[in-house]
């Protein structure tokens, strides 16, 4: 055989391989796309579908190392002492620097940790805290109405008075909210226990109350229609 033929024999072999590859190439591409797709969906689920996305455990570094464990836990300050708007307002606000200075004018006057507080207060600049608990912007949550009907602080915020650094304790996903809205009674407490973090959670009986009644006998109508929260 001429080298050409030999080549052609080899090329026959190569062609044979190429022929397989010709069918194989589209298959390969399809396989890659499928794998990529599965990876993407998997990644998306792993991110959006778990608590990671929902910021459970989100613990940002704050400009001042404020410890709830010290102030609420050890000192026993009530939540509403600082978060004055929580009871009736739309948002539970952070207190003005003046509230901190009411004590810290005299308490620990030389603490370096409190230097940002004193400095900003003297310059009449506000403290830029990093927000820990945040619901998406397409939801409209009214804080005061929840406290009014008897939702305790720790039910949604976790045991804040045990946190040295404030973190988001619970998922606060839509499922979390709807679970309570469908059957609120087990999650509620009498008004005087709202700020207690050690109030034992009631057992959820499983029966869904149509006309839920709060511990004080108030008839509840938490919205379950979309427009109640999404507007």
């Amino acid at each position: 055989m001429t080298p050409h033929h030999q080549e052609s024999a080899q090329s026959v072999g190569v062609r044979h391989v190429q022929t397989r590859a010709k069918h194989g190439r589209p298959l390969l591409i399809a396989g890659v796309v499928l794998l990529l797709g599965v990876t993407c969906v998997g990644a998306a689920l792993a991110y959006y579908g778990t608590d990671g996305y929902l910021r459970v455990g989100y613990r940002p570094v704050q400009p001042i190392e404020f410890s709830h464990k010290l102030h609420s836990g050890e000192l026993g300050l009530d939540c509403r002492f600082c978060h004055t708007g929580a009871e009736r307002g739309v948002h539970a606000n952070l207190p003005a620097s003046k509230l901190c200075m009411d004590c810290h004018d005299k308490v620990l006057p030389e603490s370096l940790k409190l230097l940002p507080l004193r400095a900003t207060y003297a310059e009449n600049r506000p403290i830029r805290w990093i927000r820990v608990t945040k619901l998406p912007e397409y939801t409209y949550f009214h804080h005061g109405i929840h406290l009014l009907v008897g939702v305790g602080c720790s039910t949604c915020h976790g045991e804040v008075d045990k946190m040295t650094q404030t973190e988001q304790g619970l998922s606060l996903s839509m499922g979390f909210c709807v679970e309570c809205h469908r059957n609120p009674a087990p999650f509620l407490r009498p008004a005087r226990y709202i700020t207690r973090s050690d109030f034992p959670p009631s057992s959820v009986n499983g029966a869904i109350a149509v006309k839920a009644v709060s511990p004080e006998g108030r008839v509840l109508s938490p919205p379950l229609h979309c427009g109640g929260c999404h507007r």
């Binding site: 620097s97 009449n124 805290w129």
Partner: peptide, 9 residues
């Protein structure tokens, strides 16, 4: 990150 900026006084 989102800031929450309360009042000073």
């Amino acid at each position: 990150e989102e800031s929450v900026v309360p009042q000073v006084r």
